[in-house]
Simulated scan of single mutants.
Amino acid sequence: ALEADAGDETRVGCDYKTLADDVVPGDRLLLDDGRLVLHVNRVADHLIHTSVVVGGKLSNNKGINKEGGGLSAPALTDKDRADLKTAIDIGVDYLAVSFPRSAADMHEARELLGEAGKEIGLVAKLERAEAVADAATLDGIIEASEAVMVARGDLGVEIGDAELIGMQKRIIKRARTLNRAVITATQMMESMITSPLPTRAEVFDVANAVLDGTDAVMLSAETAAGDFPVETIEAIDRVCLGAEREKIAQESGHRIHEGFSRIDETIALSAMYAANHLTGVAAIACMTSTGYTPLIASRIRSGLPIVGLAHSPVAQRRMALYRGVVSLPFDTSGMAAPELNDRALALLVKQGIAKPGEDVILTRGDHMNAHGGTNTLKILEVGTP
């Protein structure tokens, strides 16, 4: 048998040792996000004999998928388990879990992180056909995570290009409905690996993800190995801001016909509806200990900035992922209750977010730094210094 990193133009090694148990004659294997396609002719012990349907250059460390899904590889490998400790040691804000099949994989990752990693947000990379096979499985994975990623490379390979289009939109919609952040990734600006300008198709792809409601778009090879990383960032930023200025990106019917069960959710959503209908509002400011209130508020589309005012650096960094949320440090430990509102407004003015004469919608709780304590909404006019 070949070593995992060995191979030539006629055969190649693989570190997925049970691959031969997962395929039968007639299956198709897709390598490197589907760039190479192999038809399985026969399986003999640990050897898989294939015919090349689509050939090309194959380098090391490339992914392998089976068309339609069905590979039994676990979401968390032994190396992944070791890497979890590294993630805790270096203090990452978010940790992405590749190839989860169900909520159980995300629960396992959370359990392995333990108390030491309780502040780390888990991102489920939706890459397997099994993960999106039905609504219950998809919702389970979303709810077991702090964020999900539409990982269009492997997912598109497994479910097919035609299915991927609608699936991306469904994932984004479900994530927002279930109050989770969502990232859209893979080949967003692929041509800019070698070109200083994006194609019009890429511009529309990024803009459509924004219009669908994604919290973030993610670059890969464009900035990791491309020739124009700065130009790529500038281009994708320009496209995102342009899409967000469109009226359709600022309209929302999120949960408008639903009842609420939590006070903090009620306050957050009420603030957004008020901001979208009251003339003269410059921003929505949320005093928060965990970032939860800004997250809920950001599920409603708006052209106005949502400002997360938090004393916790963890909460500040976590909020940076949420759509439309500006995270600012705001330590209330030395403030008297009557001065909180004025200090918050002064910070917004200092940051150029609000000006004298404009209104700011402020949400807060009676007890600062208490999780789930948001119970107050105020509409405040910014005074003249």
Rank of each mutant, 00 (worst) to 15 (best):
K17W: 08
D21L: 15
R28F: 13
L31Y: 12
G34L: 06
L38P: 00
A44D: 15
D45R: 15
K57V: 12
S59M: 09
E67W: 01
G70F: 07
A73T: 11
P74E: 04
L76Q: 05
D89W: 10
L95G: 07
V97D: 09
H107S: 06
L112R: 14
L113T: 06
G117K: 05
E127W: 12
A131G: 15
E146Q: 15
M149G: 07
V150M: 00
G156S: 02
E158W: 00
I165R: 09
K169C: 03
R174Q: 15
V182R: 00
M189Q: 03
T199S: 14
V203T: 13
V203N: 10
D205S: 07
T214H: 02
D215H: 09
A221D: 14
A225F: 05
G226T: 12
R238W: 15
L241Q: 15
A243H: 02
R245S: 07
I248W: 11
E251A: 04
E258I: 07
G259S: 06
A268H: 03
A271S: 13
A271F: 00
Y273H: 08
H277K: 13
C286L: 02
Y292R: 13
Y292Q: 10
S298L: 02
I300Q: 10
R301Y: 03
L304V: 07
R323I: 06
S333L: 05
N341Q: 09
D342E: 13
A344V: 01
G352Y: 12
D359A: 15
R364Y: 08
D366M: 09
M368I: 14
G373R: 03
N375K: 00
T384P: 04
